[in-house]
Design a protein around this nucleic acid. Sequence first.
RNA 1: GGGUGGUUAGCUCAGUUGGUAGAGCGUCUCGCUUACACCGAGAAUGUCGGGGGUUCGAGUCCCUCACCACCCACCA
Length: 954
Amino acid sequence: DHAGIATQMVTEREMALAQEPTRTAMGREKFMARVWQQKQQSRGTIISQLKRLGASCDWSREAFTMSGAPGAPAGEDGNFHDAVIKVFVDLYTKGLIYRGKRLVNWDPHFETAISDLEVENLETPGHMWHFKYRLAGGETYDYVERDADGAATFREVRDYISIATTRPETMLGDGAVAVHPSDTRYAPIVGKMVHLPLCDRLIPIITDEYPDPSFGSGAVKITGAHDFNDYAVAKRNSIPCYRLMDTRAAMRSDGAPYHQAVLRAREIAAGSVTTEAEVDSLNLVPEKYRGLDRFEARKQVVADITSQGLAVTVLVKSLDADTGSEHLTLEPVVEAKKIMQPFGDRSKVVIEPMLTDQWFVDTAKIVEPALDAVRTGRTRIIPASGEKTYYHWLENIEPWCISRQLWWGHQIPVWYGLALEATDFTDDEGDNALDEVEILRILGDGGYIDREATFHCAADANSVADHFRDDLASLPHPLNAARIIEVDDRATAVEVLAASLANYAVTQDPTHLIYPVWRDPDVLDTWFSSGLWPIGTLGWPEQTPELKKYFPTSVLITGADILFFWVARMMMMQLAVVGEVPFHTVYLHGLVRDEKGEKMSKTRGNVIDPLEIIDELGADPLRFTLAQLAVVGGSPKLSTDKIKGNRNFGTKLWNAHRFAEMNGVFDLAPVEGVPAATQTVNRWIIGEVGRVREEVDTAIAAYRFNDAANALYAFVWGKVCDWYVEFAKPLLMDGDDAAKGETRAVMRWVLDQCLILLHPFMPFITEDLWGATATRGKLLAHAGWPAYGAELVDPAAETEMRWAISLIDGVRSVRAQMNVPAGLYVPVLQLEADAAARGAWARNEVLIRRLARIDSLTEATEVPKGAITVPTAGATFALPLASIIDVGAEKARVAKAIEKLGKELGGLRGRLNNANFVASAPAEVVAEARANLALREEEEAQLKAALARLAEIG
RNA sequence: GGGUGGUUAGCUCAGUUGGUAGAGCGUCUCGCUUACACCGAGAAUGUCGGGGGUUCGAGUCCCUCACCACCCACCA
């Protein structure tokens, strides 16, 4: 998307570095061109990052939220802009978008409104001051505090009410002091007026449910224009909201001098009729604070109130450093206190609640279908906890402020006309008597026009022109003779209108009348357009073939942090605009964190460039690692060690292919379909391929990408490389032609399956090997995904190979622990072998001997003293190592093994002897326990016999 | 204040309907065996945060406590 604030910010920063003219000096049109230039740069970066990561997108369908906007350069000619404007007009027409003067989060750095979601509340150290507001006319009252039983605990005569604040500078705009209706302490003075310190104004004491009697003094100053709570109180009680700050959050310096403004404020307080526009125009900041930054103003206000003796004070004992004597002094009460402060997520400056005209989406009216879609499962969110979060937010949704005072974005399709009215030209007697005095009355002393502009919302300029022509024509003569002229903004409109009126007053010539019209200079919140992504990218509102084919879409994969910003809004907007859910599944992944575990962000500059990791270690290991870390509901912490491990995995895969190549495997043409095999080893590995394919598919279907990646890792490394390649060596080197040919074919097929299954995770190395090992009809990326599964498993082959592996493992373990030199081939005795074990040995003798380093196998009926036993299912093997073993160490080893087995046996027997278990556990669980017990008992017997033999030696 | 998630081997974390705990890395021992030292073979390591409950059986379900993380929030 066009990332309004961020992109405008980055562009302006670059412009400053390059010493280009500033945005305002440049003007809107040129600046937009400059941002487009910036955008195309970062577009290149993003696309190349995606390509180097191996993203297999349909690049021909690249889309951009600002495509087709006026002034868009060549190549940016989609129609996303049209879609956005159409949706705005439609929603406005349906009454789902409205304009109003509301308290919004204002970012004083970017000088724009932002939405609730773009505010970060952070705990910061702050202070709380306590001030006295004196009762008007020197009145006093009995201030009485009572305990729970109503007994007075404190009593004094006061001429003031005490209020607490963390933002002293806002007291200049106070409109009232509020107390809780049940608060008996202040009951005597409710309805009375108090002096607002530093200001020549009186404000009333009112009651409202909002103040908490148990917090602070129980009395709250009400500054409707700079606090969300106060705003609500002010609205409920018709208290005027006086705006104190300008767009940079400095104390206002506009408008009439303070003494004039305050006069008018007093009239209003006394009940004089006023308008929202007039109240907003009144600058009630006393001269000495005008133009000060809000934090500087705070210091001044505190100092001035304190010096007037209106700070609540406390006696403080202090030591005079020179004389060493103690003093008692009155010090203002200033509590150090942690406060939650709102910061702009982009600008990082303190957000100021500001009373401004903005556009809002009436989210309450479009939220239900979005909630319903998830509740009924038409759209599913993974992980499920995401659904709870989704409900929680949507069920408590606030109106969405969608206007931004920026230039980079979709300009709001609304035009204003500052209408002339008949009353502008008549005096109280109805005569046509406009004079200079009248003009001043109309304009007001502050230079505003005491009237709202009319506005018109439309997608196309012709309709706008028609609307204002009609509007003008409806005015009485001579007003309808006015010329419509386009101006930049309301301020210019007021200027030209004033000049026009003045001219007319002098000349009475209707041709001097002017009807200024201007477009809303604001742009839409980026998320308003991103929210239309599902349809906007498919050509809507045109009924394109793409729209028919791809909408509703299937799965949205996105970061969990963006659930409200984007997902919830796409849900609401698609349902409101086209009446369908935009996707059936939302897969939320965690955020990749940096080495400190912190969120990476464009503006914070702690982003680890994927290109650097790719340069160093490769895209495949990065992708594979991310897949391994993609636990549902988890948040991956990327570490170089993990990526290195997976680079090694890639190398391993490559080496396996090298081995195959050296053994003529790739001299064969690729094998179509599952190859036939007679060799046990080959039959076994074919079954394992079937198993892993099923495992991978199951995992992917469940969005468990970590399971899929880990299954492939374990299969390729742990099965193919560790065992199959080793098993195949004797066949490839010493086997007869038939065995050799079959093994080559099977290995060829197995390796191809590895490439196919790994390709989504490691596209580069697999595609490379795919092309290098054969002349293929198509790219691996286009190869079909296999459909075989566990039906490829040959149970007999599987049992036999598992037996062989356990025997090899056993012999290796004994050798390593007995410190038998690795290269030394040793004799092995076989005893107590049943027919199955004998057969298995016979069929796999070559590979077992090779991998376990056995030089001879002798049948024996008795185990010689000092021989070490290796128990397997159906047979016991023994290594006669008397001369080289450490008997003590071996006894310890066997004893330990028996002990470990003992624990397991204890558990199994305990369960099986428990009648309740046998009765209530499922039959297959009981059977499994019985089989397991039998196996373990056999093993235990073998080990005990071995221990006994060792005991004979000493 | 509300919500969500977490607490499992030295570290980073898996553990899907309750059946008795795994991976990678690290550590230790051995090893150039003709794919691979970015390797191979072997080994050690867990009262699954504490307590209680349900159950024949709990890392897994319920309650509770402690700590951590994240999200949301208007206590002046």
